[in-house]
Structures are given as C-alpha cells and as structure tokens.
Write a protein that binds this DNA or RNA. Structure first.
Length: 423
RNA sequence: GGAGAGAUGGCCGAGUGGUCGAAGGCGCACGCCUGGAAAGUGUGUAUACCAAACCGGUAUCAAGGGUUCGAAUCCCUUUCUCUCCGCCA
C-alpha cells in the first residue's frame, strides 16, 4: 500500500495510478479523512502533553508530602477529554486505513498508457511459430487421444475447472514442475521453498489479494484461511515483520504450489480445457531487493522465466502491460506469452512484476540500509516460472507429430523418463 | 482437547504504579589505537506519526480493552510460542 504521507505529497502520481488502473477509490475522500485525522491528533496530543507534564508534577508533590488533589481533579477532566478524542481518532484512523488498502500501487514511469491488454507494448519475442505439414489437433484432442487428462471424470470430484491429469499426463505435469524447480535452483541460484497452501488474512493482505479481490479467493471460513491463488502469497510473507541486512539482498526464492482461483465472473470465457482452471500448478519466483536495484532485478527475473521456455524450445513473446492491464499491486509488469499453434494464440504463462514497496509496506518487510544504517522498506518482485496448464497446452500443440504422438523436448526427457507421449 | 510457563529494542536480557523509550550485554556505525588486522578503548545507535527555519510533541514493552491524575509494571479478553498430558497418525 501507499503511505498516507506519500499520497499527500505526491497526489497527482496517485491520481494517475487510480485513473490508469481504472480504480474507483476516492482520493479526495482519503485526503479529507487525513485532514480530519491530523486535526484531532494535534488536539489530543497537546492534551496528552499537558497530562504528562502534570503527572510528573503530581509525582513531585506527592513525594514532597504535599497535597495534589487539586491538580488530580483537574487532570481527571483532561483525561476524560482525551478518552473521547482518542475514540474519535481511532474511528477516523480506521476509516482511513480501510480506504488506503484499496488504493492501487503507483505506476512506474514509462509504462504504456492504455485501457486494456490491447494497449500492451510488444517488447521482444523468441523463436518462431512452428510450421506443420499436417492438420493440427488442439490440446484437448491430444489430451483425449493420449489420455493425458480426464476432465469429465474430474467433474465428479470438484466440478468443472479442477483438472485431473492421468497416466503420462500426470507424469508430464510432475516432470515440468521438477524441471523448472531444478533449473531455478541449480542454474539461477534461487532458494527452494515448499510453502503452505493456505494463508491467513494478514498474509493474504500483504500481497494485495485482500481485501480487494476476496471474491476471487477460495476461503475456509471455519478457520479463517484462504486457499492461495499463487505461491507469491506464502513466499512473500516469509519475511513479514522482519528487518533484513542490505548485505543479504537480493534474496531469491522459488516455490512450487498449487494455485486456487475462483475466477469469478469469467464463466463462459476460455473455460474449455486447461486454459482457465480453478486449480493449477505453478512454480513461482520471488525476490526481495533494494529499491535501487529493483528494476534491474525485474529484467533478470523476466529473463529467468524466459529461460524455461527457451530450454523447452517454445516460441513466446514478452509484452509490457499497459496501465489499464496492470494489476492493483504492481508498478510495472511483463507478461510472457507462449505460442499455442493449434489455438493460434499467445497464452499468458508468466507475469513478472515489480511491486516496489507496495507489498513490503503492507507486510512490514524492511532492510537496514548500509549507507546510513537506517531501516527502509525493501522492494519485492515476483514472476511465474511458469504456470503449467498453458505450458502444457503449448508443449502438446507445438511438439505433436503427424502420427498423434508428442515428442518431448530433450531437457524434459530425463524428468519424464521417456522421450515422447504415445498410447 | 486438558494443564502449566512465557511474549520487552536488530538480538539477548533487566525492570511489579511516577523523569522508563526503557539498565546491562551482544551486534552495528564512526573515531582512537595498529604497518595492517584482531584485541582494547571512546562516542553513538528503535520505530511511526504530528509539527517543522530551529527547538519540539505524541505513541509504541505481543494485540485489544479496563483501573488510575499517571501503566512495560495492576485487572480482563484475544493471539502466538514453549513444556507436559491426552488424541490422531
């Protein structure tokens, strides 16, 4: 979140973010509440100063054996007034903080201005769209023919949108996850974590999923827990309320997790197959870095995610999200979109974002700066590396053969313990 | 689930009603010392908010509430941690 001070001092930048991200928070209302809060604060603090002064005086009188009843009576009234003002202050403070949680992060300079994904900026691509000399099957057909997943039976368990991988499909899913984790840890120096898949309200608020996107989260009311929508939530929170030394930064973590998303409001859209599901697997990367380096680290993070697709030989492109497509918490974000030949579409498999201090402030994640030994909020970044359902779609469609088999890219073969998918 | 113990600054740890934002130590920063380092030594070292030319003010000893002129300290509630017992595996 943004500090009220920042909003007060950089009102225009905040307004730009609000309009750019098409948020409906009322900044004027927030500023008015802040004004009111400071008025009350001044009054109550002056009274408290008076009380403190007189309490000390009373102590001295009593120590000297003198009568302090006059002053005590006087202070009793002051204390009553303080009590009243404190209550009012708390109320205003609560209203203000509640609203602050809904203020989106500022937008980094240079982010393309736009209303939605059509305004995203092409950054680069890698590889080429593969060409085929035979009619293509889409991933659903391939999956059906090779019995890689069984979405019909899955419905019996949890309803639509919860994929059931079977046989070679299940093994491929596991191979992809292991391949990605190994690459991030062995080649890119990320520390591996295996986090809890349920998170509490506070942790979920840190990363920005709450309070604004509560309707997108699965929740468990009996225990006040949420099913994580991304490993970003548990991993970012591991350093909540901590102060890291500058020398330990950047810290890089990678974690596999199942991800749960209600995808409320997206019914009918892209609901076929593995394109948009309620539960999916994802390997995530999270970085804790100094503010000076966070944009450099964003480039590195994006490259780390791209490396996965390159190793698998999948054509993809990188786009920079326009203001209208940028998420609530992000200051800047690159999407990586992999090419699905049969669908003839680029599919988002990774979002790599710099959150600057937005999440750090919510989660109170700080570091001690070397230059002046002061404590500052650090910057957090994260990116998928990558989400499996669409990765599998691209993989199946890209490497399908005329005979209906799928030849796996070489780096994946030791993980799959085989070189192709066939019946 | 039952019983008990605990939660104080970056860390450890003292502090049971009145200059306690908090002793002491560690760590850290800067200086001295040294050829350089270690050791030693001196000084400094919480955070947030308000107000700011400067001085300053307020709050914070897990969280919330209460008693009091005044609470780290007394009372209540909650959360978390640890130990023992039970339960499950």
């Amino acid at each position: 979140m943004l500090s009220i001070k920042f909003i007060r001092e950089h009102t225009q930048r905040v307004r730009d973010a609000v309009s750019g991200k098409r948020s409906d928070v009322n900044i004027d209302e927030i500023l008015a509440l802040d004004e009111r809060r400071r008025g009350i604060l001044k009054e109550v603090e002056d009274l408290k100063a008076l009380r403190n002064k007189n309490s000390a005086a009373i102590a001295i009188l009593k120590r000297g054996g003198e009568d302090a009843s006059g002053k005590i009576a006087e202070m009793r009234e002051v204390s009553d007034r303080i009590r009243t003002l404190d209550l009012k202050l708390k109320e205003v403070d609560g209203q203000l903080n509640e609203r602050l949680l809904y203020v989106p992060n500022i937008i980094h300079e240079g982010v393309p201005i736009g209303t939605d994904e059509s305004d995203n900026r092409f950054v680069r691509d890698w590889g080429k769209k593969p060409e085929f000399s035979f009619p293509l099957k889409d991933h659903l057909k391939i999956g059906e023919d090779l019995q890689l997943f069984d979405l019909k039976r899955a419905v019996k368990i949890s309803g639509a949108g919860f994929p059931l991988y079977t046989g070679q499909g299940a093994r491929l899913e596991r191979a992809l996850i292991n391949f990605m984790l190994d690459h991030h840890t062995e080649q890119q120096n990320y520390t591996e974590l295996f986090p809890p898949f349920l998170s509490g309200k506070t942790a979920t608020q840190t990363t920005g999923q709450l309070p604004k996107f509560e309707e997108d989260m699965y929740k468990i009311p009996s225990d006040d827990l949420y099913c994580i929508s991304t490993a970003e939530i548990p991993v970012t929170n591991i350093h909540a309320d901590e102060i890291l030394e500058e020398g330990e930064l950047p810290r890089k973590y990678t974690a596999y997790s199942a991800c749960f998303r209600r995808e409320a409001g997206s019914y009918g859209k892209e609901t076929r197959g593995l394109l948009r599901v309620h539960q999916f697997n994802k390997v995530e990367m999270v970085k804790f870095v100094t503010p000076e380096t966070s944009y450099e680290e964003l480039e590195l993070l994006t490259a780390d995610a791209e490396a996965i697709l390159q190793l698998l030989g999948l054509h993809y492109r990188v786009v920079e999200l326009s203001t209208g497509d940028l998420s609530f918490s992000a200051a800047k974000c690159y999407d990586i979109e992999v090419w699905a030949p049969a669908m003839e579409k680029y599919l988002e498999v990774s979002s790599c974002s710099n959150f600057e201090a937005f999440q750090a402030r919510r989660g109170n994640i700080r570091y001690r700066r070397k230059s002046d030994n002061t404590v500052q909020f650090l910057h957090t970044l994260n990116g998928s590396g990558v989400a499996t359902p669409r990765l599998m779609i691209a993989l199946l469609e890209t490497f399908q053969e005329k005979d209906g088999t799928v030849t796996l890219p070489e780096p994946l073969q030791p993980y799959f313990k085989g070189d192709s998918l066939s019946l």
